[in-house]
Each structure stands twice: as structure tokens, then as C-alpha cells.
């Protein structure tokens, strides 16, 4: 058996050790990405193998915290896939407007760019005040950043373009104030947002949602874990609630596909029908 096969065994054991010691379950994540990130962390240490790294992880919490950050890919942007947001405005909001109050869940919200994007649209459509927004992630470091609502100034140009393509009605500059190298999001957008820690691999249901966003999170999960999470969303949605996935994600690998109908196929907007 060669080096690669041995390494794969070591990775398997490392993930098991993380689960038993810290409760974070990466065992059912797509392995190629996890392995790359573990090996990159390894290369930055003086350790010689994944097995040595496992030993270090068990005894050094700070080292684990670093690896945890590596293992959760937190790259995000405001109005990512503007066409998707345009479809939410056109196809989802008219339905939401018929409800007196709304519960919305962003699962895997990273540093919050997606949450603030939707909040801006809700405000522009007169829906913000009746909405309660739950923004969750299992990574406490990014959640903290999300709460602050700070975005790097060098992204503003791109976000402004995205906002316009997403059907933005105002000037994007109205939603932030520039400070040094960053921009502070309009703090009044936070009023109805609750940020909290939630792990999709191990935690339970969030009740009676009208709309769930879970974008670019499922791509990191194996089929089995995708199935669990989609089951969780199905249970958390109220009847006819909407589920929005990332543009390359689908319900195909879950047993719940038939419980949803596509509202817009191309932009992965689904509705719970049973």
C-alpha cells in the first residue's frame, strides 16, 4: 500500500479523533477538500505526518482552533449570483408579502455578507420589519465577524455591481459607511437578525421557517450528510416554505427530493410541498 493510501487512513483517524475529543463531525465531509486543507496546515508546522498532527490536536486546543478555521471554508460575498437574488425578489417575495410575519434562516452564513444582502432586499420591499432572521454557522470566529457587519473596502466595487444586477433599488452606498480600510454595514439592518452557533452535522431543527438559505455549504458534504441536512430543513420549514441552495447544489442525493418542488430550477429555489 502506498503513501497516498496510508495518508488517507491517517486522515480518517484524525477526523475521528476530532469528533471524539471536540464534537465537531467532519467525517462525512467530501474528503478531497478536507485533505488538502489538513495537509496545508501540516506544511505550516514542524510536524512530519498527519498522525503526529493528530497527537498535537488532542493535547493542544489552540492548535485545534486553527485547524477548525482551515476546515471551514468561509469565502462569501454580497449578492453572490445576482440572478439568484433577482429571482428571490421576483418569485419568493410576492408570496412572503402575503404573510403577517416571517421567519428566515441562513444556515452556514459565514461572515454575514449573504444575510445583509437579503436584509437589504427585505427592507427595499417593505418586508424587513415583519421578519425575524436567524443567521447560523458552526464557526464562532466568523459569526463574531458577521455580527460586526464589517466588509473589506476593496470588495465594494464588486458588491455594488452585484447589488445593481440583483435588482437593487437604491444606491448601494446608502448601506455602508467607509472607515479606513473597511466599510461598516448600516447597523439598523441588524435589528431583526439573531446570530447563533448551530452545527448542521450534529444539531437539530429550527422551527417554522418561511424561508431557508443554505448556499454553498452542501457542496462540502457527502451524500449521507446532505441527506441529513435536507431532512432537517424539511422539518424546519413550514408548509410551502422556500429553500434556497447554492447555484451548483441540488436535492438529487436526498430521499426528500419529492417533498419539494422547484420554484426556479436554474437558481435552485425550491418549495416544500409535503
Amino acid at each position: 500500500m502506498g503513501k497516498i493510501e496510508n495518508e488517507n487512513i491517517e486522515i480518517e483517524l484524525l477526523l475521528e479523533a476530532i469528533y471524539q475529543k471536540y464534537g465537531y463531525d467532519f467525517r462525512k465531509y467530501s474528503r478531497a477538500s478536507i485533505k488538502r486543507r489538513i495537509l496545508h496546515r501540516l506544511a505550516k508546522t514542524d510536524l512530519d505526518s498527519v498522525s503526529e498532527m493528530q497527537h498535537r490536536l488532542l493535547y493542544d486546543v489552540e492548535f485545534f482552533d486553527k485547524l477548525l478555521l482551515d476546515l471551514s471554508v468561509n469565502v462569501t460575498e454580497m449578492f453572490r449570483d445576482p440572478n439568484f437574488y433577482l429571482d428571490v425578489r421576483k418569485e419568493v417575495f410576492p408570496v412572503l408579502k402575503t404573510y403577517p410575519y416571517l421567519k428566515i434562516w441562513h444556515a452556514g452564513c459565514a461572515t454575514g455578507e449573504e444575510v445583509y444582502s437579503l436584509a437589504i432586499m427585505l427592507r427595499e420591499e417593505g418586508l424587513y420589519d415583519r421578519a425575524l432572521i436567524y443567521a447560523t454557522d458552526f464557526n464562532e470566529v466568523v459569526l463574531k465577524k458577521a455580527k460586526q457587519g464589517i466588509i473589506p473596502l476593496n470588495e465594494i466595487q464588486k458588491y455594488t455591481a452585484n447589488y445593481q444586477k440583483a435588482g437593487g433599488k437604491e444606491s448601494f452606498a446608502d448601506y455602508y459607511t467607509a472607515k479606513y480600510n473597511s466599510a461598516l454595514i448600516d447597523q439598523s439592518l441588524k435589528k431583526n437578525i439573531v446570530f447563533s452557533d448551530h452545527n448542521l452535522a450534529t444539531d437539530g431543527v429550527f422551527g417554522e421557517m418561511n424561508l431557508i438559505f443554505c448556499r454553498n455549504v452542501l457542496i462540502y458534504f457527502k451524500k449521507e450528510l446532505q441527506n441529513r441536512v435536507i431532512g432537517l430543513f424539511r422539518e424546519s420549514l413550514c408548509n410551502l416554505g422556500f429553500l434556497c441552495l447554492g447555484s451548483k447544489e441540488s436535492l438529487m442525493f436526498s430521499e426528500y427530493e419529492k417533498n419539494f418542488e422547484p420554484t426556479v430550477k436554474e437558481t435552485k429555489i425550491f418549495r416544500k410541498i409535503s
Binding site: N8, S30, R31, A32, S33, R36, R37, V73, V75, N216, I219, Y220, K248
Partner: peptide
């Protein structure tokens, strides 16, 4: 990315 079971996976990492 290519997985050991000869399937694809995707990532939006850096």
C-alpha cells in the same frame, strides 16, 4: 476536485 470514489466535488474556497 476529484474524490477517491471517482466522483467530483466543488469548493468555493480562496
Amino acid at each position: 476536485l476529484v474524490e477517491q470514489d471517482k466522483t467530483f466535488s466543488l469548493s468555493v474556497c480562496e
